[in-house]
């Protein structure tokens, strides 16, 4: 969260509070980095999956089409998948990166590792 006065390195929020960014980080920070990757991936991944049915749409009128129920099941399955991933991500944030969220009474994070 802070930049030392001599080396100003933009923080990406993955490190511990007060830790200066470096290329090799401890396990917990590494976890957080991957969590952030996941969070960025989720909407893109979801958008891709939801665009997929467009490929099945027939270009000509006489081409065989997918049945509505199949697409319905696909869309809802994707939807449930996204919801579950979001749930997992939320739990992971609670487990590894509580300080990411500005909570009125968040447990202190500044003692760990000192």
């Amino acid at each position: 969260m802070c930049a030392s006065r001599t080396t100003i390195i933009a923080s990406d929020g993955a490190e511990r509070e007060g830790e200066i960014k470096s290329s090799f980080v401890d396990r917990r920070t590494y976890r957080r980095r991957r969590l952030m990757d996941l969070s960025r991936m989720l909407p893109v991944f979801g958008a891709l999956l939801l665009m997929l049915p467009l490929m099945w749409s027939p270009s000509g009128t006489d081409a065989p089409t997918w049945s509505m129920s199949a697409v319905l099941i696909y869309v809802f399955t994707t939807w449930v998948g996204l919801i579950l991933l979001a749930l997992v991500f939320g739990m992971a944030v609670r487990r590894w990166a509580y300080h990411w969220i500005d909570a009125p009474y968040a447990p202190t994070d500044d003692r760990e590792g000192h």
Binding site: S39, A47, L82, I83, W100
Partner: peptide, 9 residues
């Protein structure tokens, strides 16, 4: 839904 699952950023 996509906005919500990308809530973190």
């Amino acid at each position: 839904t996509l906005v919500m699952v990308g809530w973190w950023w």
